[in-house]
Amino acid sequence: PTPPYLKWAESLHSLLDDQDGIQLFRKFLKQEDCADMLDFWFACSGFRKLEAHEGNEEKKVKLAKAIYKKFILDNNGIVSRQIKPATKCFIKDCLMRRHIDPAMFDQAQAEIQTMMEENTYPLFLKSDTYLEYA
């Protein structure tokens, strides 16, 4: 069978589909001061998965605000700097109108994902962190 660390090199998704892979990638991102990108990516996935049963509406609003506050509001944050102004406006607008949609962070997540795919993920595969592990 293919060892997990070889699978991680196939695609970002195979890496993010494995707990050990996530842990190692996070360690690398932390050294590069951009672990927030990974947290944001998972927060967006978790938000989308929140089910719409009763009593959840308040939780959704609270969570959407928490995600916005932690990752997007501060323009100097690593996540905020990678997200397009129009995307940020869209999210802010959803929050202000309390129009909480499961897909409201999808575009922002896609932008961060592209950034990881084109930048941090290839760097990770070449990093000492990964090579030593492998």
Binding site: L16, I22, D39, G46
Partner: peptide, 20 residues
């Protein structure tokens, strides 16, 4: 503030793959 952080952590964990 704590509960906001907890909520965020819970959300992040919920999206992670389960241990195989």
């Amino acid at each position: 503030i704590d509960s906001e952080d907890d909520l965020l952590q819970e959300c992040i964990s919920s999206a992670m793959p389960k241990k195989k």
